[in-house]
């Protein structure tokens, strides 16, 4: 079947209404649930930080979980809403494979950012003293109510 307007397109996808609406509904609910979980984790992190000595490892674990959930959300948006999941496999690969570059992109940048901090903490004591939060009344909020603010 030739597409009416583009001769390079060999045939057309057809999805029946029922499957389509079911799929969209399912995805919407899924995205909402993931977002709610993410928010819940955000609040958990907030409460951990309020404690006397926050467990950094626990915080890191929760942050890792949010990252994974975000990737899941991205997957559903791209695959269902943008219909990439319905495309030919090779097309999917041309999108997914270049994104792998982000792995080294992120790793190298963050690695060097971290190293820059270590270098300055080692060789720029002023930087270290003025920017490191003092222990005891560090960056954790011990108070329930918000900082003074004007609406």
């Amino acid at each position: 079947m030739q597409h009416p307007a583009f001769e390079e397109v060999s045939f057309h996808h057809h999805t029946d209404d029922d499957t389509f609406y079911k799929k969209v509904k399912k995805t919407t609910i899924l995205l909402s649930i993931i977002t709610v979980i993410e928010l819940a984790i955000g609040l958990i992190i907030y409460n951990i930080h309020k404690g006397e000595s926050p467990n950094e490892l626990l915080v890191l674990m929760f942050k890792g979980m949010v990252c994974i959930l975000t990737l899941a959300k991205a997957y559903y948006i791209v695959s269902v809403f943008m219909h990439l999941g319905d495309e030919i496999r090779n097309m999917v690969m041309t999108i997914v494979v270049p994104l792998l570059l982000f792995i080294w992109f992120i790793t190298a940048f963050i690695w060097d950012g971290n190293s820059y901090r270590n270098l300055r903490n080692n060789y720029d004591k002023h930087f270290q003293e003025t920017t490191t939060p003092a222990k005891g009344h560090g960056h954790q909020d011990k108070h329930q109510d918000p900082p003074a603010g004007k609406q």
């Binding site: 992120i106 950012g113 939060p133 909020d141 609406q151």
Partner: peptide, 23 residues
């Protein structure tokens, strides 16, 4: 976003978003 991450990793302190975005 990666630049943001890089700068954030190069700092000893970063604000907690829950404190900033609470209104």
């Amino acid at each position: 976003l990666i630049s943001y991450g890089t700068i954030r990793f190069s700092q000893n302190f970063w604000p907690d978003p829950n404190v900033v975005f609470n209104a």
